[in-house]
């Protein structure tokens, strides 16, 4: 009995963790999603999950629409980690943390930032950006990369 409950809870937790948080709407050239150590070729329509990394080759670019209507896109030679994401479509509360390791990123913030201005953070190797309802772009060039 106790085991059934535990297994049930674990399944629920795994289900929630594996949820779709966004969808790839544009993909050109070499584009990959890195998920649990596996590198999957990314195509238009593919779901994006929390903890995925979006990776583009020298000729690649990709755009993602998230469930709170945030839009993110990356240019060539980029590595973008979707570190944390949660959004409640009823209350519009949530959190969004992404990290640009290298390359270029464009961001249009969505509903969760409108609801609470501290909900979204974007990191680079040197900085943390807080977002107050806006469009912005970020570029990171690593030495020798």
């Amino acid at each position: 009995m106790r085991w059934t409950l535990l297994v049930g809870l674990l399944c629920f937790a795994a289900g929630a963790g594996a949820g779709e948080v966004g969808q790839i709407k544009a993909a050109k050239g070499a584009v990959f999603l890195e998920r649990q150590g596996q590198r999957l070729p990314a195509t238009v329509g593919m779901p994006v999950q929390e903890s995925d990394s979006l990776i583009t080759g020298a000729d690649g670019s990709a755009g993602v629409t998230f469930s709170d209507n945030s839009l993110l896109s990356v240019g060539p030679g980029s590595v973008l980690a979707i570190e944390r994401y949660a959004f409640d479509s009823t209350t519009h509360s949530g959190h969004f943390e992404a990290s640009l390791k290298k390359g270029t990123l464009a961001v249009v913030s969505g509903k969760m930032v409108k609801h609470s201005p501290d909900a979204m953070r974007v990191r680079t190797p040197s900085a943390i950006m807080g977002v107050r309802g806006t469009e912005f772009v970020v570029k990171v060039i690593e030495p020798g990369s």
Partner: peptide, 18 residues
């Protein structure tokens, strides 16, 4: 290393804050 962050005006002309 080089990094740059730029705030853009949105299509409606409004500019937010980063």
């Amino acid at each position: 290393r080089e990094e740059i962050v730029v705030v853009l005006p949105s299509p409606d002309g409004h500019t937010g804050t980063v």
